[in-house]
Write a protein that binds this DNA or RNA. Structure first.
Lengths: 224, 224
DNA sequence: TAGATTGTTAATCGATTAACAATC
DNA sequence: TAGATTGTTAATCGATTAACAATC
C-alpha cells in the first residue's frame, strides 16, 4: 500500500531511499541528466521543474519524474528540483564520488586525445598513467604524463590502485590485452576498439564504445 | 491475412520487401549485426543459422529472425542465412553503398585519430578533407591529407559534395559551427563534443557521440 | 490559503520472447 | 522423405505516458 511505504521512507529522513532494482533504461539516461544539470548550474540556474527540464531535453516531464523517483524523492511539491542537489545526487549514483583511478593503454592519437581532454576529471576519474609499446612513444610527454612501457604494466598495477583501463589499441590485440588486464585484477575496461569484449566470466565490467555504429546510424538516417 | 501477404511478396521476387516503418530499436541493432557478419566473413564462414548467431552475439534467436524479417526474407528455411548476402543487404540498408563524402572539422588529436583509422572506409564513407583554424595545424599533412583552413570551408563545400561533417572541435564553438555547416547545406553531422546538437529545424541529422556517458555508465557498473 | 508541482498509480504503448506452422 | 530452420503469430514482458491525489 502506497502511504505505508511513504511513511516508512519519511521515518528515516527520506531522499536517499533507492528502489531495489533500477531498470537499465533509467541508468542509461542518467548521464544525460547529469550533463544538462551541469549546464544549468554553469548558467546559475538553481531550481528547475520537471516541466521546464522536459522542454530543454525533449523528453516528457512524466519520464523525468519517474526516473528521478527510482532513487528517492529528490524534488519538492510546488517547487521543483534543486539543481545543485540533484546534480550531486546523480553524480553519487553514477560513481563520481568514488575517486576511481584510470590508465590509458595505447598512447596513439585517440589515447592522446582522451588524455588531453577534461573527460576524466569532469566525472571524478583520475588519470594516473599512459602506456604504449612503441619505442617511439615510450618516454614521450603527453598531456603532462611520461608514457610508460607496457612491460611495466603489471608492476605499476601492483603498486598503484587502478580501477579502469582505457583501451585505445588496435582491435587485433585488444582481446589479448583485455585478458591480461583482467588477470592483473583491473575491474573496469573502457574499450574503443571495434571488437567487443566480454569479461563477465572474469568478474570485470566493460564498456565498448563503437564509434563506427554511430557513423552507420548517421548514414542510415541520411539515406531516408 | 498472412498467406495473402506472403504471396504478394513472392510474386515479385521477394527478399527486397521492407516494412513500411522499421522500429528504432531494430535500426540501432543493425550495425552490431554488420560487425559480427564481417567477422564471420573474415573467418570464411559463409552460412549461419539464427541459433548459432544468437550464441555468438548473446541475443535470442527469435530476436534475430524478427529483426531481419523487417526487411524481407533474407534467410531460407532449413538452411539459415547466407552470410555474404546478409552482410551486403544490411550494408545496403545502412547506406554503405551510398558513397557518402565526409570532412573533418577540427584536426586535433581526435580528428587525427579518426582520419588515420579505417572507420570511414570500412563503412563506404570517403573522407575527402580535414579542416582546422590554428595556423600551427593548417598545411600540415595528417594521414595523407593537407589540413585546410576553416576559411576555405564554404568554397570547398560549393565545389565538392560533402554529405557528412565530423565535428572534433571544442564544445564552446560546436553549436556555432553546426549552424554554419547546416547553412552551407551539409545534411549529416557527426558530433564528438559533449554538447548536444539538434538541427532538425534546418533539415539536418546529427549523431552525438558522448563518450563521457559511456565512461559514467562504466563507473556506475563499477560501483555496484 | 491558493497555486504549483511532485510522487505515484493505472493505462497505454512498444519491444521481446515463445511457439509452431510453413517450407526448404 | 525427414530434419532443420525460417517466417510469423500470439503471449509476455517492460517501458513510457497520462492523470491526479498528496503536499509543499
Amino acid at each position: 500500500m502506497k502511504s505505508e511505504t511513504r511513511d516508512k521512507y519519511r521515518d528515516e529522513g527520506s531522499a536517499d531511499e533507492v528502489k531495489n532494482h533500477v531498470s537499465p533504461a533509467v541508468i542509461k539516461r542518467l548521464p544525460r541528466y547529469y550533463r544538462y544539470l551541469r549546464e544549468l548550474l554553469q548558467n546559475d540556474i538553481l531550481r528547475i521543474s520537471s516541466g521546464e527540464l522536459s522542454k530543454l531535453m525533449h523528453v516528457t516531464a512524466s519520464q523525468i519524474r519517474q526516473d528521478l523517483n527510482c532513487f528517492g524523492g529528490f524534488g519538492q511539491q510546488g517547487y521543483g528540483y534543486n539543481v545543485k542537489y540533484l546534480y550531486g545526487k546523480i553524480g553519487e549514483i553514477l560513481g563520481v564520488t568514488q575517486n576511481f583511478n584510470a590508465v590509458i593503454i595505447g598512447s596513439g592519437n585517440l589515447g592522446s586525445a582522451l588524455a588531453s581532454s577534461p573527460i576524466f576529471e569532469r566525472r571524478g576519474v583520475k588519470l594516473t598513467a599512459l602506456f604504449d609499446n612503441s619505442p617511439n612513444v615510450i618516454g614521450k610527454n603527453i598531456a603532462g604524463y611520461i608514457v610508460k612501457s607496457m612491460d611495466e604494466l603489471e608492476e605499476y598495477c601492483k603498486t598503484n590502485t587502478v580501477n579502469i583501463a582505457v583501451l585505445t589499441i588496435p582491435k587485433t590485440v585488444v582481446r589479448e590485452m583485455a585478458d591480461r588486464l583482467a588477470d592483473i585484477g583491473i575491474k573496469g575496461l573502457w574499450n574503443f576498439a571495434s571488437t567487443e569484449i566480454d569479461l563477465s566470466h572474469k568478474g570485470a565490467v566493460v564498456q565498448n564504445v563503437h564509434m563506427g555504429d554511430s557513423l552507420m546510424t548517421l548514414c542510415y538516417e541520411l539515406t531516408k
